[in-house]
Write a protein that binds this DNA or RNA. Structure first.
Lengths: 279, 279
DNA sequence: CGCAGTTTTGAAAATCTTCAATCTTGGTGG
DNA sequence: CCACCAAGATTGAAGATTTTCAAAACTGCG
């Protein structure tokens, strides 16, 4: 197994792969995601195309928390499939303001840009220790052409991401600070575990701090702090040091203003059936 | 030619089509978009697949300004290709708050939902008199399968829309009120004409009023009014009654904080080459 | 000319940010 | 085991931005 320091990509380590080599997990496991089988996974299904895709990976990257995966402006060309850990995608303005576009959990495919755009319009970095498969964009396109069911899965994923973005626009534009924070935490709890909080006092591991919540919600971290206190005083939830405790699931869902459809998209209940992908 | 009142769809008129019938334009033309050849157009290209698509249209709908195309919660199943006029897509919260997700100009394809989601997660209505082609979603999927280049065009469009959404998230989360208003007006000017304002005093027709700008930017219409006044006092632009006059193109672009890449996506400079679609 | 939709203005109140500290927490090394 | 450090969390007070409420003026169209 060949290890290469990914110079231009920060200190992440690049692992050369052959088809038969097992994927190397990060030595210190990510506590924020349950153990999953390593390899290309998640949104892309597990049919014939999935196996081809797995064998197409150019490399596997193992990253420490905080390391960049790519930066805004970097040349595009590779897609990434997140295997373990969390990733954040953000966009910067010239003057330093930063908006977090979304948080990714294991299974996500990311790093695509519309053809014709020269460089990446946004950046991505590991939020926790993470491992991801690198697949050349051209290879992904070719795979989509040869496997219609895989192509549909890809299109479904783009459409779902578009809905997640719409939902974030609702938050940023219409919800007040308290609702935005509640909404974000609920979303991440559901997306990372695949289900709604049910029991009072249920705990979720979410690898954020207050400045990150602030960058995602368009607030200052000071104000996020006050909203978290209010949510605690209102007996709805408590969040600190990466631990979300949900005191009142019902009021949280109500406050976050989440629709049934959105809940389904978060909890993958609506993902296309996997048998469709074996074709 | 058969005219059918689209009862459940508001007062829009539904025009039954055969392959050879010409499309009927709205009697009162939309002043906000230049005359274009009628028929399926725009983002979907003009190759072989385009011709098949044109012949696949289930109907053509001619709508007066203000009429709904579909409402949040309506069953999904049809896609729409906007031929003439402007359309707005929005999402409502239970308590009546509304966020405008995006404005569509001729050529847009809209109305898709991730498979598995039962009803529409958002609504759409005509902003001006408009005409659009109705294409069954299943037909679109089938066309994508048979025409790889068409499929790529579709994927490109989804990826571009995702970038537009990211850009709006930047606005809603990071830009202040004045920047948001400036950014929105510039975006619509560029997207509707395909080019940047160049000359001082150039005029663009944009069919919005202050409440609509407010719903798109997450502000109150009162505050939008004040920001428009400030932009006028700062000698950057003037907007009222659907007329945008750009006094200082350079400062407007600067204020809006638009990247080169975004400008390219707005002005379709980066659209995949059409010859790729003739395959 | 009059009406409806749109734009404009003022003043007070709420929300959110800024600035400037202080306090906690978890991890490190002695 | 404890002292210490750095990152993260918390607080107060002042100030800026944005909203709310209430009303008036303007515009284009019939």
């Amino acid at each position: 197994m060949i290890w290469v320091k990914g110079e231009s990509l920060g200190k992440g380590e690049l692992v050369g792969m052959t088809q038969t080599e097992p994927l190397l997990a990060h030595t210190s496991n990510c506590v924020y995601c349950a153990a999953r089988p390593l390899g290309v996974c998640g949104a892309l299904g597990d049919g014939e195309a999935f196996r081809e895709l797995r064998d197409s990976r150019r490399a596997v990257r193992i990253l420490d928390a905080g390391l960049p995966i790519y930066r805004q402006g970097d040349p595009s060309g590779d897609l990434f499939n997140l295997v373990t850990g969390w990733v954040v995608q953000y966009q910067d303005l010239e003057d330093g303001r930063r908006q977090i576009l979304r948080f990714l959990v294991p299974g996500a495919l990311f790093g695509y840009e519309p053809t014709g755009v020269k460089g990446m319009c946004h950046g991505a970095e590991a939020l926790t220790n993470a491992s991801l498969c690198v697949v050349p964009a051209a290879r992904m396109t070719e795979l989509r052409h040869r496997h219609p069911a895989f192509n549909e899965r890809f299109v479904w994923m783009l459409e779902r991401d578009s809905h997640l973005a719409f939902d974030h626009m609702m938050s940023l534009g219409q919800r007040d600070a308290r609702e935005r924070v509640a909404h974000l935490l609920l979303e991440l709890a559901v997306r990372s575990t695949g289900r709604l909080p049910a029991a009072r006092g249920e705990v979720f591991k979410i690898p954020l701090n207050q400045p990150l919540i602030a960058e995602a919600t368009g607030l200052t971290s000071i104000h996020v702090n006050r909203m978290l206190r209010k949510l605690r005083e209102d007996d709805i939830l408590d969040f600190h040091h990466g631990r979300l405790t949900v005191f009142d699931p019902e009021r949280l869902v109500e406050l976050a203003g989440v629709s049934e459809a959105m809940l389904a998209l978060w909890s993958r209940a609506s993902q296309p059936m996997d048998e469709a992908l074996s074709a």
